[in-house]
């Protein structure tokens, strides 16, 4: 009797585990479909971005063909600005009195993007599950819930078009499930031909200031271990975050800084360290917020530390508190 109960329980546990693995695989497949759809489909549409009661409207045109990926995003509200993308090269046009063009390789995208070779399965730090089916911009979408397992990162909710996996709406949520911001298509044409003229900028910025951003040549942790180990490291990190790259750069005043990038597969933050100078002012600690992006500034061991990421304020503060300088080469990672 006891034995059969044991077998039954074991079967139940195994079934449960298998079911979970299956569910995780399904979530993974949908995330892959989403990323593929966002990159490889043609579409044009209007998006609204909502945060703190502010609404911004954006128009997007996206084309993927044998010539590569081209994209144009136009802000309809506020000061005129356009983002033009050709592969990884991004050109940002700012109109108005302060017209300006900024160009460079910017890895981030308006719609979420995940690299094919993911650093770690984000599943470790999040619970992922499917919600129901909802209608967004006239299309039926499956709702994918990504809830963080702790308070050190935000959650996501994605509305993915049933047939293609295209992202129709995304929401950023805090640990309690409160909405922080929404990005949602209000209208979208999927799989339509996009003419070359649609990808041409509307803004004329003939006499604009032109700025070229030099690429960030970051080492992967493996390469960094051989070439240049990071001279700073946090004693503890929130679960799931791992060092993704190490690089060096110079700020606008010509001072060198070290740049460490950490990621849990979905969320990421950067740590910048530079030597403190008297001109930097008092050693005050502060946190700035740019919507859900938090920036911690403070001083650690005579160095100015800045931690930046789309993570809760507690995360940037925690990481900064944990930073310390590596003593010697024998110091273990």
């Amino acid at each position: 009797m006891g034995r059969s109960l044991g077998v039954f329980l074991l079967a139940l546990i195994l079934f449960g585990a298998a079911f979970n693995v299956q569910a995780d695989d399904e979530v993974d497949q949908w995330l892959d479909r989403m990323v593929r759809a966002i990159e490889t489909l043609n579409y044009r549409g209007t998006l609204v971005h909502m945060r703190d009661g502010h609404v911004d409207t954006l128009r997007i045109v996206h084309r993927a063909d044998e010539d590569g990926i081209r994209e144009r995003i136009v802000s309809v509200d506020g000061p005129p600005r356009e983002v033009l993308r050709d592969g990884n090269q991004v050109r940002i046009l700012l109109g108005g009195d302060q017209s300006m063009v900024v160009e460079g390789g910017i890895g981030s995208r308006l719609l979420p993007n995940l690299p094919p070779n993911r650093l770690s399965r984000p599943i470790l730090a999040y619970r992922m599950s499917f919600g129901g089916t909802e209608r967004v911009a006239g299309l039926y979408a499956r709702v994918l819930e990504i809830r963080p397992r702790d308070q050190f990162r935000y959650g996501h909710r994605f509305w993915l078009e049933e047939n293609t996996g295209m992202l129709l709406r995304s929401a950023l949520l805090d640990h309690e499930g409160n909405y922080l911001q929404h990005l949602s298509f209000v209208s979208i044409d999927l799989g339509v031909p996009i003419g070359a003229s649609e990808l041409e900028p509307e803004l004329s910025v003939s006499d604009a200031v032109e700025i070229k951003m030099s690429p960030v040549s970051a080492e992967t942790p493996e390469a960094a271990a051989e070439l240049q180990r990071p001279s700073w490291t946090p004693r503890m990190l929130p679960d799931g975050f791992r060092l993704a790259s190490v690089s060096h750069g110079f700020n606008s005043e010509g001072q060198e800084f070290e740049h460490l990038l950490f990621s849990d597969g979905l969320a990421s933050f950067s740590v910048y360290i530079k030597a403190a100078r008297p001109e930097d002012g008092p050693d005050s600690e502060r946190i700035d917020a740019i919507g859900p992006v938090h920036v911690f500034s403070g001083t650690v061991e005579g160095h100015r530390v800045t931690v930046v990421g789309e993570v809760p304020s507690a995360t940037v503060a925690f990481v900064a508190q944990q930073l310390h300088r590596r003593e010697s080469e024998s110091d273990d990672r």
Binding site: R109, L183, P215, A267, I290, E310
Partner: peptide
């Protein structure tokens, strides 16, 4: 400068949106 560099570098490791660049002036 740091936010921009984070956006430049972080695109390959997870979700980083250039929402801060497109909206919010």
């Amino acid at each position: 400068g740091y936010v921009l560099r984070h956006n430049q570098a972080a695109g390959s490791v997870g979700f980083v949106s250039y929402v801060p660049i497109v909206v919010g002036t």
